[in-house]
């Protein structure tokens, strides 16, 4: 199971600044289990965004948003709603955000911070990786994670080591992550995002709180909390 938490709503509103129409993507995998991207949360997000005068063109909830093929086929089922949107808000872990970004040429925003991959893992990812940094930066980087796509995990752009779009580490096989980010930002008309100096990474957020080290325990506690009020 992968544990994520919703980003503060103000952060999400900031991402959506200047955009009117939004398509929501939820996840029935781990995100639902940790109550950040299941149907209830997606509907709640829809309502909150509508209160902020955003138009929700539609939503879908995917069994494992980390799997690109599933994301692509689900989005095809909502094609006109997706096309009508300025951007997609993805309520899943970092892999789901990247998988969505990989299958559609639209701006994709993360709604969650990914905290921990542990316990019974339900993820089904392709080439996308999430470092569970607890402070997702995918909004700045066109839905491609600089921590995992860049070998050095750089946050402010490419180093001088990339040649022909390839990384100095394993240049035969490995793309320069920042080359991919640059190309995609350019395609989406978002190059200004690359001009912002990235905030210093708070590495302490990479250490999940002790109670999350065992996600099974966490799930049980979650269950108890829900049962208790009844």
């Amino acid at each position: 199971m992968l544990v994520s938490e919703l980003k503060p709503f103000e952060d999400i509103l900031e991402y959506l600044d200047g955009e009117k129409n939004v398509f929501l993507v939820g996840c029935k995998g781990c995100a639902e289990a940790c109550q950040t991207g299941g149907e209830a949360q997606v509907l709640e997000m829809k309502q909150k965004l509508e209160e902020e005068e955003k138009a929700i063109t539609g939503y879908t909830i995917i069994d494992f948003a980390c799997e690109k093929a599933l994301v692509a086929s689900k989005l095809r089922g909502h094609w006109s709603e997706v096309m009508d949107a300025d951007s997609l808000l993805v309520m899943s872990c970092g892999i789901g955000v990247q998988a969505t970004s990989a299958v559609i040429d639209k701006v994709v925003h993360p709604a969650c911070n990914t905290i921990s991959l542990g316990g019974a893992v339900g993820t089904w990812p392709g080439s996308e990786r999430c470092r569970q940094c607890g402070d997702c930066v995918l909004d700045l980087t066109a839905g491609i994670c600089p921590l995992t796509a860049c070998t050095k995990g750089l946050l402010n752009g490419p180093c001088g080591g990339a040649k022909d779009g390839k990384c100095e580490f394993e240049p035969e096989v490995r793309d320069c992550g920042w080359h991919l980010i640059y190309e995609r930002l350019k395609k989406l008309g978002q190059l200004d995002k690359m001009r912002e100096i990235a905030p210093l990474k708070d590495r302490s957020k990479m250490q999940p709180p002790k109670h999350l080290r065992s996600t099974i325990m966490w799930a049980l506690e979650q269950e108890e909390r829900e049962v208790a009020p009844r």
Binding site: T151, G153, N156, G157, I197, L200, K201
Partner: peptide, 13 residues
Amino acid sequence: EPVFDLDSVSLLQ
């Protein structure tokens, strides 16, 4: 272990 806690920009900062 490659560190890269900072990068050239944040080192300048």
